[in-house]
Design a protein around this nucleic acid. Structure first.
Length: 108
DNA sequence: CTCGTGACGGCGA
DNA sequence: ATCGCCGCCACGA
């Protein structure tokens, strides 16, 4: 299923930029995609993503929660761990493994 | 056009 | 800390 909308393309592009060993939340991706608050919509698009070049497993829920993964979230957890991400229980320490976007306005 | 769905986010109990 | 509810956005029918 190819990309139909511009938003989907943006989301995939952002996810693709997530460095290995790091994770980003749906909300963060939504914001970077140009639609703050569209975290839910992002998740919807992720379902459609089945591309190897798009590390959708690096996209987790807010608070470091793993979120979902087509019903196999335990697989998602393993994938993250395999990349070097520390997963405590069902959560990821975002302050350490959260994707730090550069060139953004995190500088006041 | 309207309605329902869903890999979410935040707040309250 | 955990569980539950409401709210938000984009997409498909």
């Amino acid at each position: 299923m190819p990309i139909r909308t511009d938003f989907a393309a943006r989301v995939l592009a952002v996810v693709r930029k997530i460095p290995r060993g790091h994770v980003a939340t749906y909300g963060q991706v939504a914001t970077l995609a140009g639609r703050p608050g569209a975290a839910r919509a992002v998740g919807n698009i992720m379902k459609d993503c089945g591309r190897p070049d798009v590390p959708c497993h690096r996209v987790i829920a807010a608070g470091g929660r793993l979120g979902g993964y087509g019903g196999s979230e335990h697989v998602k957890r393993q994938l993250l761990v395999a990349e070097g991400v520390v997963v405590r229980g069902t959560r990821v320490p975002m302050p350490e493994f959260g994707w730090r976007v550069r060139g953004g306005r995190s500088r006041r």
